[in-house]
Design a protein around this nucleic acid. Structure first.
Length: 975
RNA sequence: GCCGAAGUGGCGGAAUCGGCAGACGCGCGGGUUUCAAAAACCCGUCCACGCAAGUGGGUGAGGGUUCGAGUCCCUCCUUCGGCACCA
């Protein structure tokens, strides 16, 4: 297609203005203190979820959110805000690496190329970012600070007394001062009266810090650090050669990326103690303006539940099994217990008679993947241990079973089974013929068997007759009195598995003592730890589930070896080959005092996961080139802190964050976690990173399948009219195809490139079309056929301004009253619609105005305001017409001009038409002056005086007249 | 199974608060212009009956609240998204 006689030359105009914006730095946003900064303007931070520069190229679905934020940022700038609107690249991680593997080029190289390509694509879309703030998570100047944040996590603990993260040195101090002692589990616990322990003694089972060995101290601290190494069951994906986070594994037990099988294996990995923040992450959702469904998804993921821990004594043995239950009110109905196969007590409790059976069962259960466990949920399995427990409320002996429907990772890994009122226990008890005792009376008409709702207690001794919530309170109090249990809150959230056996990620700022294996953080002056260049960066993939991970960084032999010493903060500083350490002390918090000794270390070989870099990028945009801090405190405060209308601080910094809902529980949860840690440590000013979140919908597209169900490329599909019906056939062969609707992308072979659309119709047309398709939050189908409508609209705008000979059609005469009224109505509509991100209706309003201007020579007053309204949506066209409109007086981009104001008085119709209904059906209309339409009495008399209404009401009696000022009249009448 | 979102013409969608259902665009039908075509412009376009004025019906299905329901409440159906043995 070529530009036809009826179209303006969008190609020339768009290229001209894109070049101008770059050269002029039109969208550069000065920080406070920089030249051009205007302190009188309020700030507004608009952020996109930055892309992975994956290299397969964008399709028209990708820029949907970017176009929306671009329009909004331009609008806010014109409204007088200092707008921060940056863009960058989340360039570490699997997609970039896999692309590099497929094309046999180092990831560093492909990433650079992909970024260049993506930047060019975004610039062709006319997106007005401040390119001076561009960042990539793969730049050493960026990941230096990702590593720095990791050091803060490593060197911090969560202080329950402060309900916040604190430097680990404070924990050491508290232990040294004996405000805290260490309990049997290695947990620091508070001492009620420090200093008086000489008289009262330590709490039972606790030890003083001074009594611990260096190894024990180290274990205590490692047990509190927010970043720690642990041997945990992880999701091991041999095909990818790496472990994955729970969030990266599908519920079929396969990798989110690549759909490879995933196995659970215990491995020593880096973990982040996000569980300590479960409560705050859940609670602070109340502070943010996010879509409710997204908040709910986070709440479900965190999975807070309230209940109790109860101790069951094992019959004839000196053992106790602790269980967690959300229904302590059903204790009297507990007729057996179940331990998870991995539970510590399984081996000890099993009777000799049952030993073979139990061992076999545990062995099988351990090797079952998540996939197998899920598929086999239909039939519950389990074996009896031969041991019995005592139900603490009624003294009954109940059998202890082992079954894999109980998970080790949740609660205590053991449950009391109440088959009468729990679906799973009911299934299990039915299968294995275990007793089922009713303890809850459901509402009338419902069967008690398997009833899990609330009701009234029965068969529960002295508690009979209590309602479920009341019973819960009473029984928890009773258990606490008896020392048998406590009320307890539990979360489904697990600690975050933070290491990957990949090349293309941030190296950890961690070294291991080459002789002892002891772990040390590097001193922050040692950052960045540069990712070494290696020949073979491929992960070791395997089909064998028992294969062991082999981090590619292990191949960088020179890089791995570090010579250095431990300094007085416990951090490692490196030395050059012949360098000697400066004089001073070595002193780690766990002990080990002494002079500085040169040691050999080996670097940590794992790298950080994809999510690390995206956890804090919104902070770096504020101050992207700072070498002294991850973000300057004053600048962070300026861009992140905003006040509500009543003057109180808003919860979070970014004023508008737009992205897809697919990040509801991954990126958005991780980023909130890191932000809260940084908040606790005084690095940021707000409790939440993103004050307002908006989820854009997907662009869907028709996808076509042949008879075998194979997808056929959309470009090979032809639409054929067969009588009344439309059928779809393959162009090349003519075979019939079936049509479906799905997310646009490579797999459905239905992707459409924005470059193609820009070439044929222009960037402004593409922008306007994507915004016009429907509400931003909705998913809606792409239709190339419909684009012509936006193309016609923008051409019509051009023709309103420019005559065939190129002369401007604008006059200095004032517009007619009607046109001026319509203009002010349009300004009002567009302003409100853009403010509410309702771009589709804003464009409709502009089309209506354009259509109404048809016969007029355009008045300058109208032209001026119209171009300002149009400019965020179709910036190239608006810039060009703006420059022509101002002529020699033109000085700068329309993006820097102000937003037009509307005048309510000028927008007001002098006369309005009011529908008059009889019994809810419109029977007539009356015209009356605008002032009278707001007056109930005048409305009423006008309606009742209308000839048509009088005629219709003949023979009826009027019961009531309802007058809605300015809207309508309804006469209620009967025969 | 549980949780969430959404169902409006041939299609995408519009309808701040419960107040004229279908704005705006696509498509389609008719016309102007043209040697012709494209583009552009004008008229029409929810369905049924009617030449028309008009009358009746209509927002996934059924019920309810109300002077009045696309909008609120209850039950059900369909589609999409999330979670999935979390005790």
């Amino acid at each position: 297609m070529t530009a036809s006689a009826g179209s303006y030359n969008f190609r020339e105009i768009e290229a001209k203005w894109q070049a101008y914006w770059l050269a002029d730095k039109t969208f550069r946003t000065p920080n406070p203190g920089e030249p051009g900064f205007d302190a009188a303007r309020p700030k507004f931070y608009v952020l996109d979820m930055f892309p992975y520069p994956s290299g397969v190229g964008l399709h028209v679905g990708h820029p949907l959110g970017y176009i929306a934020t671009d329009i909004y940022a331009r609008y806010k700038r014109m409204r007088g805000f200092n707008v921060l609107h940056p863009m960058g690249y989340d360039a570490f991680g699997l997609p970039a690496e896999q692309y590099a593997v497929e094309h046999g080029v180092p990831p560093r190289e492909t990433t650079r190329r992909n970024i260049d390509n993506m930047r060019a694509q975004m610039q062709r879309l006319g997106l007005g970012y401040d390119w001076d703030r561009e960042i990539a998570t793969t730049d050493a100047g960026y990941y230096r600070w990702t590593q720095w944040i990791f050091l803060q996590l490593y060197n911090s603990w969560y202080d329950p007394a402060a309900d916040a993260a604190r430097p680990i040195s404070e924990l050491v101090h508290k232990l040294e001062q004996e405000h805290l002692v260490v309990n049997f589990d290695g947990e620091p616990v508070a001492v009620s009266s420090p200093g008086l322990q000489e008289w009262y003694g330590l709490p039972p089972g606790t030890q003083r810090w001074s009594e611990l060995t260096v190894e024990q101290r180290r274990a205590v601290l490692d047990g509190q650090r927010l970043a720690y190494l642990d041997e945990v069951p992880v999701n091991w994906c041999p095909a990818l050669g790496t472990v994955l986070a729970n969030e990266e594994v599908t519920n079929e037990g396969r990798s989110e990326r690549g759909n490879h099988p995933v196995f659970r294996r215990p491995m020593r990995q880096w973990m982040l103690r996000i569980t300590r923040y479960a409560d705050r992450l859940e609670r602070d959702l109340d502070l943010v303006d996010w879509p409710e469904p997204i908040k709910l998804m986070q709440r479900n993921w965190i999975g807070r539940s309230e209940g109790a821990e109860v101790d069951f004594a094992v019959a004839d043995r000196d053992e106790v099994i602790r269980v967690y239950t959300t229904r302590p009110d059903t204790l009297f109905g507990a007729t057996y217990m179940v331990l998870a196969p991995e539970h510590d007590l399984v081996e000890a409790l099993t009777s000799d008679a049952q030993r073979q059976t139990v061992r076999k069962y545990v062995e099988i259960a351990r090797n079952r993947s998540d996939l197998e466990r899920t598929v086999e949920t239909k039939e519950k399995t389990g074996v009896f241990t031969g041991a019995y427990a005592i139900n603490p409320v009624n003294g009954e002996r109940i059998p202890i079973w082992v079954a894999d429907y109980v998970l080790m990772g949740y609660g205590t890994g053991a449950i009391m089974a109440v088959p009468a009122h729990d679906t799973r226990d009911f299934e299990f008890a039915t299968r294995f013929h275990l007793p089922i005792v009713q303890v809850v009376q459901p509402p009338a008409g419902q069967d008690w068997r398997g009833y899990t709702g609330e009701g009234v207690a029965v068969n529960s001794g002295e508690f009979n007759g209590l309602t479920t919530p009341e019973f819960k309170k009473r029984i928890i109090a009773w258990l606490e009195e008896q020392g048998l249990g406590t009320g307890r809150v539990n979360y489904k959230l697990r600690d975050w598995l933070f290491s990957r056996q990949r090349y293309w990620g941030e190296p950890f700022p961690i070294v291991h003592d080459a002789a002892t294996g002891e772990v040390f953080p590097l001193h922050e002056d040692e950052l960045p730890v540069l990712l070494p260049q290696i020949e073979d960066f491929r992960p070791r993939a395997s089909d064998d589930p028992d294969a062991l991970p082999e981090p590619p960084l292990g191949r960088a032999e020179q890089w791995v070896k570090v010579r250095g010493y431990v300094d007085e903060t416990g951090s490692v500083r490196t030395l050059l080959p012949d360098e000697v350490p400066p004089p001073g002390e070595t002193r780690s918090s766990a002990g080990g005092q002494g002079g500085r000794v040169v040691r050999e270390f080996r670097r940590e070989l794992n790298t950080m996961p994809q999510w690390a870099g995206s956890c804090w990028y919104y902070l770096r945009f504020i101050d992207p080139h700072d070498d002294n801090a991850l973000v300057d405190t004053a600048l962070e405060h300026y861009w992140m802190v905003s006040l509500k209308a009543d003057g109180t601080p808003h919860a979070g910094g970014v004023d508008l964050y737009v992205g897809g809902a697919e990040h509801a529980v991954l990126h958005l949860l991780y980023a909130r976690f890191w932000h809260k840690v940084l908040f606790d440590l005084g690095c940021v000013s707000t409790p939440e990173p993103f004050g307002r979140l908006f989820n854009q919908g997907y662009i869907q597209a028709h996808a076509y399948q042949d008879a075998r169900g194979i997808y056929v490329d959309v470009r090979d599909v032809q639409e054929v009219q067969k009588g009344a019906a439309t059928v779809y056939v393959r162009k090349s062969t003519g075979e019939p195809l079936t049509r479906g609707l799905g997310k646009m992308g490579k797999s459905l072979k239905n992707a459409i490139s924005p470059d193609e659309i820009c070439r044929d119709y222009g960037t402004d047309t593409l922008r306007a079309y994507e915004m016009y398709m429907g509400p931003l939050e909705a998913s809606k189908p792409w239709s190339t056929r419909d684009i012509i409508g936006m193309s016609r609209f923008l051409n019509a705008v051009w023709r309103r301004f420019v005559a065939e000979d190129g002369a401007l059609k604008v006059t200095d005469d004032p517009p007619s009253e009607e046109v001026r009224r319509l203009l002010h109505k349009t300004i009002r509509r567009v302003t409100h619609d853009l403010e509410g991100l309702r771009f589709n209706t804003a464009i409709a309003a502009l089309i209506e105005l354009t259509n109404a201007l048809r016969a007029d020579r355009m008045a300058r007053e109208v032209a001026d305001a119209f171009l300002r309204l149009l400019s965020p949506i179709a910036p190239h066209l608006a810039e060009e017409l703006w420059q022509r409109l101002l002529g020699p007086a033109w000085r700068r981009s329309i993006a820097l001009e102000s937003w037009p104001e509307y005048d309510e008085a000028l927008a007001l119709d002098p006369e309005v038409e009011i529908p008059v209904q009889i019994n809810g059906k419109v029977r007539s209309r009356v015209r009356l002056p605008a002032g009278d339409a707001g007056d109930q009495d005048k409305l009423r008399s006008a309606a009742l005086a209308d000839a048509k209404i009088i005629e219709e009401l003949d023979g009826m009696s009027v019961k009531k007249v309802i007058c809605v000022p300015g809207r309508m009249v309804n006469v209620v009448a009967s025969v």
